[in-house]
Design a protein around this nucleic acid. Structure first.
Length: 869
RNA sequence: GCGAAAGUGGCGGAAUUGGUAGACGCGCGAGACUUAGGAUCUCGUGGCCCUCGGCCGUGGGGGUUCGAGUCCCCCCUUUCGCACCA
């Protein structure tokens, strides 16, 4: 290999001093090999980049993996699995000649660290450096191709200064706003938690039931990007499951806003009465509006008080009180029966003109749609249940198409109404009553001029009709909420805002950043609903940058997800301290070519990172709007059929395994135990196979003098080219387990019958194994006489398609679809010749005896199927 | 309840996408070698009948096809998301 003078990688040292004594030179010692090469990579700067020195724009490859939270426990097997899988991909790219930037960092702010610090009674500022040092040691030990000159620690002022800058950019761009909002409050963590961090009504971190509170919070207006976040997914090279998860989370639904004029208890309100305003509902089924027999508001709906009649005000207030006290678990329990109270108020159904009662009930959620619904009990399960409970009218307005070929979706009626009798059954004069809501499509009935229309067609027409009188408009609604980034916590970047009595909220001038997080010994959150920083007067007291009057700092810190929403932009520019990221360097390396991470972040982190990237794009800071060209989620490692956890006692501790078998064997085993994107079951004995493989490879190469200097055996050569072909195809698709199997098969073939390998047979294998086992590959590569790292220069072997072609093939001969024999024949043998050979085969002939050959199916080089009768 | 993914030997998993099911590895069995090792090597290893050979076999039941682990329909189970989203 001729060293590339233009390579940014430093050339190898001339002499490489062996650290082993001659007598143990020939035995594979993972410890010796790995410490030697880790040291050498460090000395040579093999993985370090001067990021403005790449050979050509196409050669740059940004290989990203989700950075870890540096826990006190150290790296767990799941981390190592993920990082190894990503590292294999990066090393492969590099072996094919690309300049690969593979950074790593630490996501060390957040509740996780803070809670741990509280638990052990050590300040997080004292705790994090040790954890990071330990992680760094372990990360080096597993042989990742990390560029240690470009790491990120989100808790350093050098980093969070720019996190604060990012906040200010969004603030200036009108994408950050402060508003009072009902929030989830975790009484145990003493903080607001995002909707996303509430799992089944419980706090994601401590499983405490979450309550509701109303606090002024900072929000990022991610909902304004809902449509773009959704649209871009179409074209992105991400795993389908991740895209689906994002789509579901954004939750687009098409429907309409319908306006229901309020009727004053003392008499009908004039239409368009500006004082009274109008009640709006969101519905995806405007076609059922003729069946809306009552309306329900969320108990927190702002119009409730104005609608409630005097007689009902006691009941309404009591109900609202009860609901507000209720935690979200109880409220969201599905199996509980519907509750609610009548407000005493009425509104007009805009389609029928009838007065319908207005109720409040907690099954209507304030944070979706308009916080109000039109209830169509005949065609919505929840409304049906509610109407049944409170004896409200159920009016059927959609009946299934009379074709009746799909009885499964017909409404079941009491009595013996046939499916074609639904129409009459639905007539108000009929005493028969629906037993279930029918939420399918069908033909409209009881809907005035729209009777007989298909419900799908009726939607648009009814909306247009109501829109003529300004009672409806089309609307697309999203499940996605704005991103609440405030945390009433200590361990995060202070939000860079100052409150001035005269000027209101004033952004901290960029040149004054960072707003340093002060070292506060008492950082325990309390029940006051404000951050511990609000107890540090000398910190929060400041002056307004606009009018110089005394002012007060924002004491909330920002969400950890904000730290991780832009770290990939920082990595290439960590050398620079006057900008968050350099535009030229960013233009060269971003967007990220391949991002690998866990599915647990498939929704939130990825969505936030996409949003921030889009916002920065709109604000003119970067020229791309999607940060991750390709994303793949790795699977989960389980043990004994269950997720590893301390409580189960099935946690695999990596260090002792690496001590015994080496990082290379550990890496190889992890990549071998299942498809990378699906994960797999960790078995303690499993590493034996890959470890043995490395040993056999070692023995096949060492001592190098014993290698035969001859052309590869033709059979072996063919196998080699097939193996290269397969692996070159599979590694980019993360088909690691099968790639490793292919290498094992190849080595088995090389060693079959105890034959001695030729150099040309094993040298390519050393390069092939390099992504998985970088240390041993380097060692063998070096012993084979190369004085440069195997990763410098495009050392990935190239296959010759000609040489993958088999000379002879094994054909299966079937009689009536059952294999009765096989034939070894030259590749490409035509049908007639195969048939002739097949008839010679005794076992085949037996089955053809006395039978009439009716049909012959021939798949070239695969099989021959003889159909006899 | 809704959504997604998946069910293949004792185990982890392969299968060119409709063409010899079980590659590769673990484990297990037998043997070889020995500087006794957590080493290495050889052979065997889905079940049953065992005779060259045959029958059965990819969660269960149907179907399409010369041929189904793969495609279609119904059912069962598991895992993971979401969970009153109008």
């Amino acid at each position: 290999m001729i060293p590339d003078p233009g390579s940014p990688h430093r050339r190898a040292n001339e002499d490489i001093a062996p650290t082993m004594s001659p007598e143990n030179m020939d035995r594979y010692s993972p410890r010796d090999v790995e410490t030697r090469w880790q040291r050498r990579w460090e000395e040579w700067g093999t993985n370090r980049f001067t990021l403005d020195e790449i050979r050509s724009p196409n050669a740059a490859f940004y290989n990203l993996m989700m950075f870890p939270y540096p826990s006190a426990e150290g790296l767990h097997v799941g981390n190592i699995y993920a990082f190894t899988g990503a590292d294999v991909h990066g090393r492969f790219q590099r072996l094919t000649g690309r300049d690969v930037f593979e950074p790593i960092g630490f996501d060390a702010f957040g509740i996780h660290s803070e809670n741990f610090a509280l638990k052990v009674g050590v300040h997080p500022m004292g705790l994090i450096p040790g954890n990071i040092a330990n992680f760094t040691r372990q990360l080096r030990r597993i042989g990742g191709m990390f560029d240690w000159d470009h790491t990120v620690d989100t808790t350093t002022p050098e980093y969070y200064r720019w996190t604060q800058w990012l906040f200010l950019q969004l603030y200036e761009g009108g994408l950050a706003e402060r508003k009072e909002a009902p929030v989830n409050w975790c009484p145990s963590c003493m903080t607001v938690v995002a909707n996303e961090q509430v799992v089944g009504g419980l706090c994601e971190r401590c499983d405490t039931p979450v309550e509701q509170r109303h606090i002024a919070q900072w929000f990022f207006r991610i909902t304004e990007y809902a449509e773009r976040l959704l649209e871009n997914l179409e074209e992105m090279d991400w795993s389908d499951t991740t895209k689906k998860a994002q789509r579901n989370w954004i939750g687009r639904s098409e429907g309409a806003i319908l306006r229901f004029p309020v009727v004053d208890p003392s008499g009908p309100t004039e239409e368009g009465d500006p004082i009274d305003g109008r009640l709006e509902v969101f519905t995806t089924r405007p076609d059922t509006v003729f069946g809306a027999t009552y309306m329900v508001l969320a108990p927190e709906h702002p119009l409730v008080e104005r609608i409630t009649s005097d007689e009902q005000s006691g009941d309404v207030a009591g109900y609202r009180e009860r609901v507000s006290r209720m935690d979200l678990v109880a409220r969201k329990k599905l199996d509980k029966s519907k509750t609610g109270v009548f407000t005493g108020g009425f509104c007009l159904n805009p389609a029928t003109g009838e007065e319908i009662p207005i109720w409040i009930a907690d099954y209507v959620l304030m944070d979706y749609g308009t916080g109000a619904i039109m209830a169509v009990p005949a065609h919505d399960e929840r409304d049906f249940e509610f109407a049944t409970e409170f004896g409200l009218e159920i009016r059927e307005v959609v009946v299934p198409e009379p074709s009746g070929d799909d009885p499964g979706v017909s409404p079941s009626l009491e009595g013996e109404a046939s499916s074609t009798g639904s129409r009459e059954a639905a007539h108000p004069s009929e005493p028969k009553r629906l037993q279930d809501a029918y939420s399918g499509e069908g033909l409209l009935v009881n809907s005035g001029r729209f009777d007989g229309l298909d419900s799908r067609d009726a939607r648009g027409r009814i909306v247009s009709w109501l829109a003529e009188r300004d009672r409806a408009e089309r609307r697309i609604n999203y499940r996605l909420h704005d991103w609440c980034i405030s945390r009433q916590r200590y361990w995060g970047p202070p939000i860079p805002i100052v409150y001035c009595d005269a000027c209101g909220p004033v952004p901290v001038p960029v040149e004054e950043l960072p707003v340093l997080l002060p070292r506060v010994e008492d950082f325990k959150p309390d029940d006051t609903g404000v951050s511990p920083l609000a107890r540090v007067r000398e910190w929060y007291e400041t002056s307004c940058s606009e009018c110089a009057a005394p002012a007060r700092r924002e004491t909330d810190v920002s969400d950890t997800f904000l730290d991780s929403a832009w770290y990939f932009l920082r990595y290439p520019s960590t050398d620079l301290d006057d900008v968050p990221f350099d535009s030229e360097i960013t233009g060269r390396w971003l967007p990220v070519d391949c991002y690998i991470g866990g599915n647990e972040h498939a929704v939130l982190h990825l969505l936030y990172a996409r949003f921030i990237t889009m916002a920065l794009n709109d604000l003119g800071h970067i020229d791309f709007e999607e940060p991750f060209t390709r994303f793949r989620a790795h699977g989960l490692i389980i043990k004994d059929g269950a997720k590893m956890s301390k409580s189960r006692g099935n946690v695999v501790v990596p260090d002792p395994i690496i001590d015994r078998y080496g990082a290379d064997a550990f890496r190889l085993y992890l990549m071998f135990l299942g498809p990378f994107e699906e994960g797999g079951d960790y078995q303690d004995q499993g590493i034996q196979g890959p470890f043995g493989f490395i040993n056999r490879l070692w023995e096949s190469v060492v001592p190098v003098d014993a290698l035969e200097d001859r052309p590869a055996d033709p059979e072996i050569e063919r196998k080699l080219h097939q193996t290269i072909e397969q692996i070159t195809r599979q590694i980019p698709e993360l088909g690691y387990n099968t790639s490793i199997a292919a290498m094992m098969e190849y080595l088995n073939a090389v060693r079959a019958g105890g034959r001695t390998a030729a150099r040309s047979e094993v040298e390519p294998l050393v390069a092939l194994i390099a992504p998985f086992c970088p240390h041993v590959a380097e060692e063998l590569w070096h012993r084979l006489g190369h004085d440069q790292s195997v990763f410098d220069g495009a050392n990935w072997p190239v296959f010759d398609p000609e040489k993958t072609i088999e000379a002879t093939v094994t054909l299966a001969v079937q009689v009536n679809g059952k294999v009765r024999g096989t034939l070894e024949l030259p590749a490409g043998t035509p049908e007639e010749a195969v048939l002739r050979e097949a008839r010679e085969e005794p076992n085949v002939a037996r089955y053809l005896e006395g039978a009439e050959l009716r049909r012959v199916i021939f798949v070239p080089d695969r099989l021959l199927n003889l159909v006899v009768g």
